[in-house]
Amino acid sequence: MIFENLKPQVETIISNEQKTVDERLLEICELLEKHIKYYNWVGFYFKNGDKEELKLGPYVGEPTDHTIIPFGKGICGQVAVSNQNFVVPDVSAQDNYIACSITVKAEIVVPIFVNGENIGQIDIDSNTPDPFTEADERFLEFVCAKVAEIL
């Protein structure tokens, strides 16, 4: 499975202290986008200081206007409140969806916890309808746990 092959690469990226945190996060985005064919936009959002909003961090894919997302708004904003993974097989069926691109068909968002606090998330858009499985969730939980180690 591709996820098992990517785990050691994620660990290598995370452990490279010669690079900044943002450089390592960008490298993870690039790794996932390159090797998982249905990951078309990969990025991180983080809690913006004391504000009830998320701020866009490193990402790869089409540019987005959504650099700030209020808590509760869109899929990412809902995950900031719920502290739960959110898998959206069909974004057109979601009432509270913020469209980034007309090509996006599905989205998965997994929160990042540091000391039990939801401080951010990984957000992945796919141009493929309903591509995400439980294996994606478990892999992205692994990625988020590794990312949490350097935050």
Rank of each mutant, 00 (worst) to 15 (best):
V91A: 02
Q78W: 08
E141A: 12
E107M: 05
K105N: 07
V110H: 01
F46C: 08
I112D: 00
S101A: 13
I119V: 15
I112R: 01
V88G: 00
G57L: 12
D95E: 14
E53Q: 15
V60K: 12
I122V: 09
D130W: 00
L25F: 12
G61I: 11
D90V: 06
E53Y: 07
P70A: 11
K51E: 14
I102M: 12
I112G: 00
C29L: 03
G43F: 01
W41P: 02
L140Q: 04
A93R: 11
E52H: 10
E141F: 03
L32H: 02
V104R: 00
R24Y: 11
S82K: 02
N118C: 14
D125A: 07
I75L: 08
K105L: 06
K37C: 05
I68L: 14
Q84W: 00
W41M: 05
K146I: 08
Q84T: 09
E107K: 01
I102Q: 13
T133Y: 08
E33L: 03
N40A: 05
I102G: 11
K47D: 05
N96I: 06
T67A: 07
Y97E: 03
R138Q: 13
N96D: 08
L25M: 12
V21A: 10
C29I: 02
I102D: 15
K47R: 15
G116P: 08
N48W: 10
